[in-house]
Nucleic acid binder design. Structure first.
Lengths: 137, 137
DNA sequence: ATAAAACTTGCAACAATAGTGCAAATTCTA
DNA sequence: TAGAATTTGCACTATTGTTGCAAGTTTTAT
């Protein structure tokens, strides 16, 4: 697959083994990945620091986005087409399964608007739903 | 004020300096607090470990609740009356100001229900809105 | 008011996670 | 294919969270 290549190219990034491999992981992944998942799946073929920096770069370029969690782990998932550098459009709901612990982007479920108190100006919203996913029922 | 005393009493916790002080911080705080904020405001009068354990205890007892963020820091905020031990009712929207960086509980704004794809069973939802708060306009 | 029981704290040690500077290696440009 | 630009890995440091245990504090029951 040349998909990884194209994504990197489109974002003006050098094509390197590490970046291709990490992108591949995201493309294959069903759900979101944590830094730890990536290290596990790459067999320490790349330095820990490289993974951090790659993830940072991808977030900056709008290739992946971060997902908020309560348990102090940053999760990352691929952005869909609409994202561009410096401007994410990841306003879809994220689902965390209590059973298999996977985090899944519900790309088709957009975060609903809410009425905020007077004076609060919304710019971005995130929504996380916990429960049991389709596979675990 | 005897409010701290009462909260601790009601939850069957021993009344200690540390717990009273940390509760006071929450009662005074406009927004949510991170572990680091608490250490800062207590002048290291209490051990780092004590702060961790106090926060844990408060979460378990339903005195404070955790707020998900994307930046890898757990935030805590006081629960309103409705919370009880082991059963939080913090299904309100949280607002993070891009300017002053405060996190505010919008207690009156409940997280809306969303329609999930077939097979997904929701149990708990969280919603975080980023933007400019009332004070910063 | 007081002693024993129960609980809480601080310390030290540890573990996991994240970030930085810099030299070596790789990738890109022309 | 050489030089410029970027990326990587290493060693080191910083930050964040956890655990066991002895000493200290709070509670309880006299």
């Amino acid at each position: 697959m040349e998909q990884q290549f194209n994504i990197l190219k489109k974002n003006g990034l050098s094509i390197t083994e590490g970046r291709k491999k990490i992108l591949e992981l995201f493309l294959d992944a069903e759900g979101a990945l944590a830094h730890a998942d990536i290290e596990k799946h790459t067999d320490a073929a790349f330095d820990r620091v490289t993974v951090y920096r790659t993830l940072q770069t991808f977030v900056e370029k709008g290739i992946i986005h971060q997902i908020p969690t309560t348990d102090n782990a940053i999760l990352y998932a691929l952005c869909k087409d609409r994202c561009e550098e410096g401007h994410h459009h990841d306003e879809h709901v994220h689902f965390i399964c209590d059973n298999c612990n996977k985090t899944i982007c519900l790309d088709d479920v957009t975060v609903p608007d809410v009425k905020l108190p007077k004076g609060f100006q919304p710019l971005q919203s995130a929504m996380v739903v916990k429960g049991i996913c389709d596979d675990c029922r």
